[in-house]
Computed example of a mutant assay.
Amino acid sequence: MSILKRVLTTCAAALAASTIAAHAETTIRLGHVLPETHSWHVAATGFAEEVAEKTDGRVTVEVFPSGQLGNEKEVIEGLQFGAVQAGVIGSGSFQFLEPKIGIIEMPYAWESREQAFTALDGDLGGALADLLDDKGVVVLAWWETGFRNITNNVRPIAKPEDLDGLKIRVTPDKVRLATFEMLGAEPAPLAFGELYSALQQGVFDAQENPLSIIYSSSFFEVQKYVSMTGHIWGAASLVVSKAVWDKISEEDQAVLREAAQSWAVKQREMTAEAEADLQAKLEEKGMSFNTVDKAAFIEAVAPIWESQAEVFGPELMKTLEAYR
Rank of each mutant, 00 (worst) to 15 (best):
G46H: 13
K73G: 02
I214V: 15
I232P: 02
A116G: 10
F64S: 04
D252T: 01
G57V: 00
T27C: 07
Y323I: 12
E273D: 15
E105N: 09
S66Q: 04
V203A: 10
T37D: 12
G31D: 08
I157S: 04
F219D: 05
D205Y: 00
E144G: 08
L199W: 08
Q80T: 11
S262Y: 10
E72G: 02
V244F: 03
M317N: 15
A274P: 04
G57P: 11
P172I: 00
L124R: 03
A83T: 14
I104A: 01
T145A: 14
K294F: 05
F180T: 00
R148G: 12
T271W: 06
L124Q: 03
E194N: 15
M1N: 07
S66R: 07
I20D: 09
L140T: 14
G90A: 14
Q68F: 01
I3P: 00
F180E: 00
K285E: 12
V7T: 07
M1E: 08
L238F: 09
E98K: 01
E306W: 06
A13C: 10
S112I: 08
V61H: 05
V311T: 15
A302L: 13
A129R: 04
R29D: 10
A178R: 13
L15P: 01
L79W: 03
A16F: 11
A24R: 01
T171Y: 10
A260P: 01
D162P: 04
E62Q: 14
A83Q: 09
V138Q: 11
G92S: 14
A322Q: 15
S18K: 09
V137G: 06
T291M: 03
R29H: 11
L278H: 05
A119Q: 15
V222D: 11
L131V: 10
Y215S: 11
A52G: 11
A13V: 14
G136L: 08
I150K: 06
L166F: 03
V203L: 13
S307Q: 13
A254G: 08
T145N: 15
G184F: 09
E258V: 06
Y323W: 09
M106E: 10
V311E: 03
S112H: 09
I157H: 05
W245L: 01
L199A: 06
A21T: 05
W110Y: 05
L278V: 04
L320D: 00
G230Q: 03
R268M: 06
T118H: 09
A13M: 13
E299Y: 03
D173K: 00
G234M: 14
D121G: 04
G125T: 13
I168T: 05
Q207I: 05
A274G: 07
R155M: 01
E186F: 07
V240G: 01
L30P: 00
C11T: 13
E114A: 13
V84L: 05
L34W: 15
W263A: 12
G87D: 03
E321H: 11
I103F: 02
V84H: 06
K224T: 12
A302E: 15
S307Y: 06
I168G: 07
A16N: 08
P172Q: 00
I103L: 09
E221D: 13
S197Q: 13
G230W: 01
